[in-house]
Design a protein around this nucleic acid. Structure first.
Lengths: 352, 352
DNA sequence: AGAGGTTGCCAAAAGGTTTTGGCAGAGCGG
DNA sequence: CCGCTCTGCCAAAACCTTTTGGCAACCTCT
């Protein structure tokens, strides 16, 4: 029983015009509140109320065809949708888009699908006449953006444009790491170890740089015996921590490359009979969704600004679109967004 | 220096036609491989190669206007984008959409934004002429779908339509839970506790039902002293586990409502000096991204079919769209997708 | 040679909107 | 009453496709 679901024939601007006894021009002007146009208040009211009564729903496809803008922006994620972080980026982008009355169209390219597939994906977005494209990648290597992206304003998340022509946003991992070290130093630690990831990605470099900078700013000399590495998972953190803790003059704190490695550090500490944080302080990186808060004791770590990067991307994109279409490719410096320290319970104050 | 970035005027189907010396009709037919149309092989080749050379990019807005279909499907998530699971749903939907040559437009509604906001979001998608809408919610309460959704084929993820008119897909939590219990039973356990969540959501009910069914199928009598509950986080799991383990005849296994609570159980076990899995076996639910695999010992748990639900949703939606537009609202049973057990290391074989 | 079928292509309409360039009428000053 | 400026509205073109209906030309029989 299709209750009141009689098939309602689509009502268009024409129907509104007819019902209101005006031209479609007038309806369009009224509904869009076109400036510099003259329509009596009476007519405006009539048009508006009739449009409402008729249940008029504008057709944005038609509108887009005429105005040559779709009010859509494309989010091209490269493998990233697979990572737990992806949701935050998408959410940030989506909410910022909503704020600007834009809609987000997303496509995920598999990393191993090759450059051709990625170009096809970009093209698909462009065929849809998106006003701009966000290209988000997992590791911020330098990247040469698919040339189709030149056809349309674009911004990069998590990667640098090799030609330096496309605006990019990245997490400022180094500063985050340095802040974390500063936090440890403030708590009285001076023998601070670093369990880095053994695979070479920009994050590895950035966090190491930040660690060293943190030490330097505290006037603590670098000690390479306090730097270990392992695979960027619990197992790697376990082994690296064992190595770091298995000596006379053991560190009082371990800074792990990421939260997963920190989990390994927790295990190592437990096996050595060291309580966290009193026996050993441990910090991580990533503030990975449920881990950091669920573990005991809750892990002090650094959050990545995924949401913020997503939002930044669509914000800059809209600026780009607004600005003269000939100037948007002006060379820009990448934007580094801060990675805030998330204070929890895995760091103890120690007496110096 | 805008290298070869001279502003290329958009090339349309008309330009291709002119260059090829044929009509736009022919170009359209050739490029779309319209069936039942006759064009010589020579002309086809010419058109295709000219289109390629000119870099013709079809305008899907215009196409959609004419064909009255946008090849877009809308994903309306209600708060869900905030949860770590969201990414998987989106990914599943996206990849299935790609397979059908569709694009996914997503909008996230905040739960607290109220029904009006959600209706506005639905309307925004409809204005974009999406061919169908997926409405995904966090908790699968029954839900009365925004009436705007009646205007367009729709499917539900994680919720039931109160009117029973919109197809819905849900995780079969009960069976997953029963499987988990069966696994424990197979390993020799008979005193199996359940640490449930204290808040009332469908999942609470479903997992409890599955737990009980698992026991029954194993011929183990229900023992309510083995059922505890707490907040659905590490803290709640900790307290519930303490309560369950603090007795003479303690259980040999604890089934936790979710992985976060399982983390609490791990802590409780540790404090009581029970090794996992030998002293006590622990299982969770959700297979929450990095937790379950990173913890030591790795947690045996049950995965939710988020990806599969996303994919199912767009698959059914495309079927709905294809089928006669008058029949798509036929009443349907909800689809329950299996929650597979993920075997890891937190369960020990014990001798009966 | 005419009928009838095929082949290969095309002109024009349609889809729903925005935007341009007006045009009538009212009001007003002279 | 003429000329001028506003006011309030409109017709038609444009955006880029797809699709309908048909038309020449050619071929094949009889």
């Amino acid at each position: 029983m299709p209750d009141e679901d009689v098939v309602v024939p689509k009502v268009g601007i024409r129907d509104v015009a007819r019902a209101a006894g005006v031209s479609v021009t007038t309806v369009s002007h009224v509904l869009n509140e076109t400036p510099h146009t003259r329509t009596s208040e009476a007519t405006r009211d009539r048009v508006r109320s009739i449009a409402r009564d008729l249940g008029y729903t504008p057709n944005r496809l038609a509108r887009g065809l005429r105005t040559r803008t779709s009010d859509m922006i494309g989010l091209l994620t490269e493998e990233i949708a697979t990572t737990p972080h992806a949701g935050r980026i998408i959410l940030g982008a989506q909410e910022e888009a909503s704020r600007h009355n834009l809609t987000l169209a997303i496509i995920n390219s598999h990393l191993d699908a090759g450059a051709d597939a990625r170009r096809a994906d970009a093209r698909a977005l462009i065929e849809r006449q998106v006003d701009g494209i966000i290209y988000a990648t997992v590791f911020h290597h330098e990247v040469s953006v698919p040339r189709e992206l030149r056809a349309v304003p674009a911004v990069l998340i998590g990667a640098l444009d090799r030609q330096g022509v496309v605006p990019a946003v990245l997490p400022d991992e180094a500063s985050g790491a340095a802040d974390l070290v500063a936090l440890l130093v403030d708590a009285g630690h001076r023998r601070i170890a670093f369990a880095n990831s053994s695979i070479e990605v920009p994050a590895t470099q950035g966090r190491l740089v930040g660690y060293l900078r943190g030490l330097e700013e505290a006037g603590i000399p670098r000690d390479d015996r306090l730097i270990a590495s392992g695979v960027s998972e619990a197992a790697g953190g376990y082994e690296a921590s064992l190595e770091l803790l298995d000596r006379e003059d053991r560190p009082t704190a371990i800074f792990c490359y990421n939260d997963r490695m920190a989990m390994g550090a927790y295990r190592a500490a437990q096996e050595l009979g060291l309580r966290i944080p009193d026996g050993i302080s441990i910090v991580g990186f990533d503030d990975q969704a449920p881990i950091a808060a669920s573990v005991y004791p809750a892990l002090t770590t650094v959050a990545l600004p995924h949401y913020e990067m997503g939002a930044w991307a669509v914000a800059t994109l809209t600026r780009l679109v607004q600005s003269s279409s000939t100037s948007w490719y002006r060379s820009t410096h990448p934007t580094w967004l801060p990675c805030p320290v998330v204070l929890r319970e895995s760091v103890a104050q120690i007496n110096r």
